[in-house]
């Protein structure tokens, strides 16, 4: 079995290369890349123009010195054929150099790592919340299958599912953010501005205050899938022969469901944990935007819009890596929770 996991780890490399190569190529051919943006910027500053997009014909009138252009191209390896550029990028990557963000003008890894804690914080809490709510809910729905509770809870989670997280965030803010309705929570931000000055207790409550709504917005969308997965998995196991055996042994219903059937139906849920690590880190641009949180989702989105390719590639590298690692983690979890699985 260790051979299996070793093989999976080795397979990471070609998969990783494939994905990055694809995206690298795309960034090279999509118009509006860093050079063009830089050129635009410089032209604007040299003509003193302020209006952004309206200054199109003015911009063309001024020529950039070819020396500057060449230097720019060199910095982004645009002077080389694409495969060489990719290899250069890869060589940098091996030395953990992800390049420099042209927008913020700081190394990409510093930029990304400065945003991670916030995203992980919300991701992790949202994710824990989802499991804490959905597993008991799914179990209860399976036991009361077809009843009023089952029906009502299905309706609720599916409404949650069909409202996008950012929209829900917006609604929640309108309701509870001190606008026209209740003033229960702050309007956003990761913490209050005066957080450092608060007492320990004050720090905790302040943080919780700021956490509540974004986490709900993050998590509610995932409730439906997870709850339904839990319910179906348990229902399926309740129909299995070994459940009949457990009843025939004289075990009470509670033990049959909560031990025998539940243990089996948690297998697909557990293995989903591996895939979740990439989701934890992914963040969500729109939710972060609504709540004014400076996370990875926001960074990724703005980098794409502004063609800050070094950052885009950097986030991509980390996410790809996490997804691939998550898949392997899922397999490991599978082996741990299901004694029948022996990969070879």
């Amino acid at each position: 079995m260790s051979a299996y996991f070793l093989r999976r780890l080795l397979l990471l490399i070609p998969t990783f290369l494939g994905i990055t190569m694809l995206v690298f190529t795309v960034t090279r051919f999509v118009p509006g890349g860093p050079i063009e943006q830089m050129v635009m910027k410089m032209q604007m500053s040299s003509t003193g123009g302020e209006g952004g997009s309206g200054s199109g014909d003015m911009a063309t009138s001024v020529e950039l010195p070819s020396a500057v252009l060449a230097e720019l191209e060199k910095a982004y390896h645009f002077d080389k054929p694409i495969h060489q550029a990719y290899l250069l990028w890869l060589a940098d990557l091996v030395t953990l150099n992800l390049g420099k963000s042209y927008k913020y003008n700081i190394p990409v890894h510093e930029l990304i790592f400065s945003r991670f804690p916030v995203s992980i914080y919300f991701g992790l809490i949202g994710f824990t919340l989802a499991y804490l709510v959905c597993i008991p809910l799914g179990v209860l729905k399976a036991i009361r299958h077809g009843g009023v509770f089952d029906f009502a809870s299905s309706a609720t989670v599916f409404i949650g599912y069909s409202i996008p997280g950012w929209a829900l965030g917006g609604i929640l803010l309108v309701l509870f953010g001190g606008g026209s309705f209740w003033d229960l929570v702050p309007l956003g931000d990761f913490r209050s501005a005066n957080w450092e000055e608060l007492s320990t207790w004050g720090k905790v409550t302040d943080q919780l205050h700021h956490t509540l709504l974004p986490v709900l917005a993050y998590a509610v969308g995932s409730f439906a899938t997870l709850t339904v997965l839990m319910k179906n998995s348990l229902m399926e196991n309740l129909g299995q022969d070994y459940v009949r055996t457990a009843f025939a042994k004289g075990l009470p219903e509670r033990r049959v469901i909560m031990l025998h059937a539940l243990r089996n139906s948690l297998i697909p849920i557990c293995t989903g944990l591996g895939h979740a690590i990439s989701l934890i880190m992914a963040g969500s641009y729109l939710i972060e935007k609504v709540f004014n949180i400076d996370g990875i989702g926001y960074l990724g989105y703005t980098s794409i819009i502004e063609r800050d390719y070094a950052v885009v590639m950097g986030i991509l590298v980390i996410n790809t890596f996490l997804i691939l690692l998550g898949n392997i983690l899922s397999d490991v979890l599978y082996v741990l929770v299901d004694p029948r699985i022996r990969f070879s």
Partner: peptide, 28 residues
């Protein structure tokens, strides 16, 4: 009632089934 029946099953009347492959819980 159910409680009394639980005491009969497995202790006084036991049952085994056709499918030996699936009648045992795979994870215990």
């Amino acid at each position: 009632d159910y409680r009394e029946m639980h005491k009969v099953r497995g202790r006084e009347i036991a049952m085994i089934f056709q499918e030996p492959m699936t009648s045992l819980n795979p994870v215990f």
